[in-house]
Design a protein around this nucleic acid. Structure first.
Length: 229
DNA sequence: AAATCGGTCAACCGCGACTTT
DNA sequence: GAAAGTCGCGGTTGACCGATT
């Protein structure tokens, strides 16, 4: 189609009605021809997009359910920014809608969660390292067996700028409890080189021990992941 | 009340893949 | 097999609107 006199921008109700009518007659194909036949001053592409993202029957509009949100995040982690593929798993949702929703809601939340996770992990690692130094200096580690909690407390417990694992806030959720498990493993000899790095297409990376994700459905912990209040 | 800012989302653009001629 | 046409996808833009200053 020639570029002259083509309308752009927001669709009018008359245009929507016309497009709907002609798609019903001619089917969802040959969008350039359809636009011409329908007398729409729109490109075929524009018509297709309007139909696919707005006029198509059985489209859902409005708020995403918690289940949909979880599915989007899960699929985004698995597939990357393959919005069309993700959309196929969510009946009634369009790739555009999911893409927008990811950008405006979920990405920030995921990053906040991830940032919070990294921050806590950093503190935890430092804490574990510090404990390790303290323990070793006191000959408190026997092979892979560590001292009892009471002996951890030999470190100055009155200090307010040092976290105590016993009352550490990371225990507040199942997801975070897993971090404690990991830290326990760190105490048993995991080093940094055992950390698995998983970078997705957005450039953000997850770090976890190699065993972390095996046989583990992260959505078991969705409660903590999504409770951001 | 006006200006500014930030979030949201519909629509556009460019490009690669696929289909048709 | 090549060229032209069409489709589908992901990234980006810009208009709109409510919140904040």
């Amino acid at each position: 189609m020639q570029g002259e006199n083509l309308r752009k921008g927001t669709w009018l109700q008359e245009e929507d009605e016309q497009l709907t009518s002609f798609v019903a007659r001619l089917g969802e194909r040959r969008w350039d021809s359809l636009a011409k036949v329908a007398g729409l001053k729109r490109s075929g592409k524009s018509c297709r997009l309007r139909w696919m993202n707005y006029l198509r029957p059985n489209l859902k509009h409005g708020h995403f359910s918690v289940e949909e949100e979880q599915l989007i995040v899960q699929l985004q982690q698995e597939l990357g920014n393959k919005w069309a593929k993700i959309a196929r798993k969510l009946p009634g949702r369009t790739d555009n809608e999911i893409k927008n929703y990811w950008k405006t809601h979920l990405r920030k939340r995921a990053q906040a969660q991830q940032g919070d996770f990294k921050y806590k992990l950093e503190i935890a690692t430092q804490e574990v390292n510090q404990k390790s130094i303290d323990m070793d200096s006191k000959n408190c580690k026997h092979g892979n067996v560590w001292c009892q909690d009471s002996e951890w407390e030999t470190k100055d417990s009155s200090s307010t700028d040092t976290l105590s694992l016993s009352d550490w806030e990371l225990r507040s959720s199942p997801y975070e409890t897993r971090i404690l498990d990991w830290i326990a493993e760190l105490q048993n000899g995991y080093g940094e080189n055992e950390l698995e790095q998983d970078c997705n297409s957005t450039g953000t990376c997850n770090y976890y021990p190699q065993e972390f994700d095996e046989g583990c459905d992260s959505w078991d912990y969705s409660g903590s992941l999504w409770d951001m209040n």
